[in-house]
Computed example of a mutant assay.
Amino acid sequence: MRFLVTAEQANTVLVKKGETVRRLETSLNVKLSLSSFKGQSDRVLYITGTAENSSRAIGALVRIWSDDTTPFAVRMLIPEPLMIKVVGFRGTSLQRLHMKSGAKLEAQKRRLPGSTDRLLVATGVADTLHRAVYFTALIFEDYKFLLHRKYPSLRNYVPAGKVVEEKPFRQMMVLVCDSDYLERLKKGELKVDVNKLQVVG
């Protein structure tokens, strides 16, 4: 999962040559990384791990960034096809996330500049934000196939304004046929119309 953090928050994580990062990575079995710094006020925080461990990492970071008594805002970067599932029909899924986590959730309606990402802002204390990220991550797991199906080339948000384009997702098709048919295909005697193929299983 990806989060938009301020330069000040990023510097807090990186103090003492990344000691905080190493401690969190070891104790929670996650991978933390930050986008390169080019003078912009925001940076992207990448957290790789299970839904539970990633959400626990956010809870731990929020406790570092705040006093855990004042509501704190976490900004999640959500690809648009997944944001549709996070919000749900007329906001029903977003309302369920609020009920389960206790965090206030607001989904931005517009994409970020030059990107297919939208911001999901969760506001609350560390425990509620932990739960909000956890339940959002579960939605990611359930619908991650949508990323390649609807957006074969996603453009992730980069604070400096540089767009990073992912490599297109490649699909492989298996054609089942007898040896005679295969030989005729090799010789060019037959052509396959992929629009008329039947998918089985």
Rank of each mutant, 00 (worst) to 15 (best):
E106Y: 02
E106V: 09
E106P: 02
A107G: 04
A107W: 08
A107P: 13
Q108P: 02
Q108E: 05
Q108N: 03
K109P: 08
K109W: 11
R110A: 12
R111S: 12
R111Y: 02
R111I: 01
P113A: 05
P113F: 08
G114W: 10
G114D: 04
S115M: 10
S115Y: 13
T116I: 07
T116A: 00
R118K: 15
R118Y: 13
R118F: 09
L119Y: 07
L119D: 03
L120A: 12
L120R: 10
V121L: 05
A122P: 08
A122N: 12
V125R: 15
V125G: 01
V125H: 07
A126F: 08
A126P: 04
D127M: 12
D127E: 14
T128F: 10
T128Y: 12
T128P: 12
L129A: 00
L129K: 02
H130F: 12
R131V: 03
A132W: 05
V133F: 03
V133W: 05
V133K: 07
V133L: 05
Y134P: 04
F135E: 04
F135S: 02
F135A: 01
T136N: 04
A137C: 14
A137N: 10
L138M: 15
L138T: 03
L138V: 01
I139A: 02
I139P: 00
F140M: 04
F140W: 15
F140S: 00
F140G: 01
E141N: 11
D142F: 11
Y143L: 04
K144F: 08
F145I: 04
F145L: 07
F145T: 08
F145N: 14
F145S: 14
L146S: 12
L147Q: 11
R149V: 09
R149A: 07
K150Y: 00
K150Q: 03
Y151Q: 12
P152F: 09
P152I: 05
S153L: 07
S153Q: 15
S153H: 11
S153K: 13
S153W: 01
S153P: 02
S153I: 11
L154K: 02
R155E: 11
R155Q: 14
R155P: 08
N156P: 00
N156I: 04
Y157M: 05
Y157C: 03
Y157W: 04
V158W: 02
V158Q: 10
P159C: 00
P159N: 02
P159Y: 03
A160S: 15
A160F: 13
A160D: 15
G161D: 14
G161K: 14
G161Q: 12
G161V: 14
K162F: 13
K162Y: 13
V163A: 08
V164Q: 06
V164M: 04
V164D: 05
E165M: 08
E165C: 03
E166W: 02
K167R: 05
K167H: 12
K167G: 14
K167C: 06
R170P: 00
